[in-house]
């Protein structure tokens, strides 16, 4: 594959279809500028600031933009809240839709056939494979991203974190917790 991709890149550059420096900048952007640390900032802010949390749940796109995060695959954000009674899980059964602006590019498993196929029919089984067994009396809501709405799970704030500041709280937030394959 590496050689075939190199050939395609040479051709597209030669024809003026892409700017080679822009390609480097795109890779840098997705490796360093966006990623799950953005989403972790959003979650940590929501845990500490009830007014921000209310705005986040009412209009995810606008509240997330307050922290400077916006852009493609995050144009229409909906944030869904985990509670002691409800657990949310995000999937895209048809392809790989994922909120790039707050989580970056999706992990391999999120784009894989096993996850895309089973998350809707056996969400509890899939979550168990990530190490969390959900009690039967918790309601599981799966969000299948079939349009351009992108979903972010707001995990429950872990117990014993009352004294932590926003930076320390953000470190407690995991990518899998914001997809819903883990509970924090």
């Amino acid at each position: 594959m590496a050689l075939r991709v190199k050939a395609l890149e040479s051709l597209m550059v030669e024809k003026g279809l892409v700017d080679p420096a822009a390609l480097d900048a795109i890779v840098d952007h997705f490796e360093h500028r966006v990623g799950p640390r953005n989403g972790a900032r959003v979650v940590a802010r929501a845990w500490r600031d009830p007014a921000f949390k209310a705005r986040l749940l009412a209009d995810g796109t606008a509240a997330i933009a307050e922290l400077g995060y916006a852009g493609g695959q995050g144009d229409h954000m909906v944030v869904v809240e985990n509670t002691p009674q409800v657990h949310n899980l995000v999937v895209c059964t048809l392809c790989s839709c994922y909120p790039w602006s707050v989580l970056g590019l999706p992990p391999v498993w999120y784009k894989s056939s096993p996850y895309r196929s089973r998350a809707v029919i056996d969400p509890r089984g899939v979550i168990a494979e990530f190490g969390t067994v959900l009690p039967d009396d918790i309601e599981v809501r799966v969000w299948d991203s079939t349009a351009e709405i992108r979903y972010l799970v707001l995990p429950e704030r872990p117990a014993g974190t009352e004294a932590l500041d926003e930076d320390a709280l953000a470190e407690r937030v995991t990518r899998d917790g914001m997809i819903g394959t883990a509970r924090l």
Binding site: W109, S113, P114, R118, V120, I121
Partner: peptide
């Protein structure tokens, strides 16, 4: 369009 299919392999966390 694979939602609801089974036996496509194990999910591999990373």
């Amino acid at each position: 369009d694979m939602g609801g299919m089974e036996n496509l392999g194990a999910v591999a966390p990373e």
